[in-house]
Amino acid sequence: MKTYYVYILKCSDDTFYTGITSNLSQRIIEYQTGKHKDSYTYSRRPIELVFYAEFTNVELAIDTEKQIKKWSRTKKEALINNEYDKLPNLSKKNFK
């Protein structure tokens, strides 16, 4: 069974990048070495892997990546810090 990873990288400019891959270690190497010059992270290296989750269902992984990309920085930080109880209260409609 294939495994998919949704991940969050912290960039050198203190921004977050969220992505999906089926080979996390290879993808991190690609970011660190600057393999993709047109990528968001290229000029923001070095990067740090700060969160990842494993999925066996690719559709669920894609949906999760899309969901996280819409989140506020504060909500992403709660996820990264394993503060799952804070996530419902940090939705954009509640966070003003």
Rank of each mutant, 00 (worst) to 15 (best):
L24N: 02
D13R: 02
L49F: 04
T41P: 01
K35I: 13
Q32H: 08
S39H: 05
K35Q: 08
K69G: 06
D14K: 05
K37L: 13
N94I: 13
Y42W: 05
K75Q: 15
E30P: 12
D38W: 12
T18H: 00
I80K: 01
L90D: 07
I8V: 11
Y84M: 14
M1R: 04
K66I: 14
F51D: 13
K96I: 14
T64A: 10
P88A: 03
D63W: 14
G34D: 04
E59G: 08
I68R: 01
T21S: 00
L90G: 07
Q32M: 05
Y31G: 03
S72E: 10
N94L: 12
H36F: 15
Q67D: 14
T21R: 00
S91K: 13
D13H: 04
W71L: 03
N23W: 06
T21K: 00
T64W: 08
T3Y: 06
Y31S: 03
Y40A: 09
V50Q: 07
M1N: 07
V58P: 03
I80Q: 01
I80V: 09
K10V: 11
T56E: 05
E65G: 05
Y40E: 09
N94D: 11
K66C: 09
S39P: 04
L9I: 08
Y4E: 00
Y52F: 12
R44T: 11
N81V: 13
R45K: 09
F51A: 13
T15E: 06
K92F: 15
K66L: 08
R44W: 05
A53C: 10
L90Q: 05
K76Y: 15
N81K: 10
A53F: 11
P88K: 01
D85L: 11
E77M: 09
F95N: 15
K35C: 07
I8M: 01
K35V: 15
I28F: 07
A53K: 08
R45A: 11
P88E: 03
K10T: 12
F95S: 13
C11W: 03
E48M: 09
I80E: 02
L9Q: 00
C11I: 10
A78Y: 10
V6T: 01
H36E: 14
